[in-house]
Simulated assay, not measured.
Amino acid sequence: MRMKKRMQLVVGLLFVGVHLVCAGKHSLRYFYTGVSGVSNLPELTVVGLVDDQHFIYFDSNTNRTVPKTEWIKQKVGADYWDEETQTDNAYHQSFKNNIQVAKERFNQTTGVHTFQQMYGCEFDDQTGEINGFQQYGYDGEDFLFLDLKEMRWITPVQQGTLTVQKWNNDRALLERDKHYFNPECIEWLQKYLDYGKSSLKKTVSPQVSLLQKSSSSPVVCHATGFYPSGVTISWMKNGQDHHEDVGLGELLPNEDGTFQKSSELKVTPEEWKNNKFICVVEHQGKTITANEIRTKGDSLPIGIIVGVAVAVAVLLLIGIAVAGYKVYQKKKGFRPVNASDDGSNRSTHSFDSVYSVHSDDQLI
């Protein structure tokens, strides 16, 4: 039962914190997820995203970093993949060690556990604003956070204080971090944007359909096949905005680099029959509406069929790399723990593997 609940949490939080790219804003992010206690999942999964487009992938079962887009495959040579593979394999042992240390810190011996890292950068080509981010999570909760403005590590939990003390006292490490996030990360982001400009700058409008399993089920407005990822789904009732009994789903990736998202409306058959409900999808300045529910006899657009199938596959293949982790967002009420505080649950073991991103002589 515990295993089932843990995996439900992982699936349910898929892409919870993915920061949607707005017009003019571009991002490069890497997600590393180490898992223990699950025999059929890789111990480490790595996903790289440019403007939310999945462009590289690694897992410890295959032990090889591979391209996920044609543009990166065509623009870099074998040396790139050899170096990425070497780095990611080194991370594998690091993450195994960090999970073990975290378990000791939290007085845990068994069960399913995850140790996650997200780092990257973004810039706005309209305002020139630059930002970087680096976080660690454990079991779906914030664990460590790098404040780039103050150049210091912060932890919201007592179990992270030993690591914060160690890393904040390493000035050389902090300076290297600062240099990586600006200019190195930004330079690589700009290079990737140039590599994939034909794909990353494309605009594809969504296919929109209303779906319903039975007359007593919610009506689902499903938008799929759109790019970029920014989309708004809303409902109207008799020409007026409608917000009651509406639930919004998470953004999900499709295999072709596009996205899908859905919103459901809880409504009785009588309400639907006696009122005019419309689903409104806005994407890149275009508005698409739908007001007729597809029945079992109707053929679904191929984008929906493929999108749903791929979403399931993504949950199994890359979803865990970004699940259960509050990416680039401090939680409401976040309070850092003072590094001098003493905690009864704190282990005397410190992290043996200090945080490191790709070193200066490696491509990211």
Rank of each mutant, 00 (worst) to 15 (best):
W167P: 00
Y355D: 05
G196P: 00
Q53T: 13
L189P: 02
I288M: 12
W81S: 06
G230E: 14
F351I: 08
L248M: 13
P218K: 01
Q362M: 12
K213D: 13
Y138I: 03
R152Q: 11
D352S: 14
F351V: 06
W81K: 00
D170V: 05
L300Y: 03
M7Y: 07
D139K: 00
R176L: 12
S344E: 15
Q190V: 02
D88Y: 06
E129G: 05
S263N: 02
D59L: 00
K332A: 14
G343Y: 03
I278C: 11
V21H: 07
F106G: 05
N254R: 07
G196C: 01
N254Q: 10
V66D: 03
I233C: 10
H349E: 12
Y325S: 14
E250Y: 10
H242D: 02
T114W: 10
V220Y: 11
S216A: 09
K191W: 02
L173I: 09
I302C: 06
G297M: 04
Y355V: 07
V164M: 07
H113F: 06
L146I: 07
T289Y: 01
D342R: 15
V47D: 10
S344N: 15
K201T: 11
K73Q: 11
L252T: 09
P67W: 00
E150M: 08
T258E: 07
N238C: 08
L9P: 04
V314Y: 14
W71L: 00
E141K: 13
D142N: 09
N131P: 04
K296T: 11
D88W: 10
L144T: 00
I304P: 01
S216V: 14
S198V: 15
S263H: 09
N274Q: 11
R6G: 13
W272H: 09
F115P: 02
Q74F: 12
L211I: 12
G132D: 00
G77D: 05
G111V: 01
V337E: 14
N40P: 01
I278W: 05
T127V: 00
L144F: 02
G37I: 06
D51S: 01
V66S: 09
V327S: 12
V76C: 03
I72V: 13
L146D: 00
D79T: 06
K75F: 09
F115E: 11
G140V: 08
D194H: 13
I154K: 15
V66P: 02
N168A: 11
L193P: 04
T87V: 12
W81R: 05
A321G: 15
V354H: 07
G128N: 04
N63Y: 09
L49M: 10
G140E: 04
H113Y: 03
L189N: 02
G160S: 03
V101H: 03
R176I: 09
E187I: 04
V101W: 11
H358P: 02
S359A: 12
H242N: 01
L174Q: 03
K261W: 00
T155Y: 03
I302S: 15
L265S: 01
F55L: 06
N169S: 15
T33I: 03
R346A: 15
A309V: 06
W71T: 04
V219H: 07
D139Q: 10
T348Q: 05
M1E: 13
Y227I: 04
S39A: 14
C185P: 02
S299C: 08
M236E: 15
H54P: 00
I305M: 12
S39P: 05
V219I: 14
S215I: 15
W71C: 03
N40Q: 01
D177A: 15
M118S: 12
K331H: 09
G319W: 06
W153Y: 08
Q117S: 14
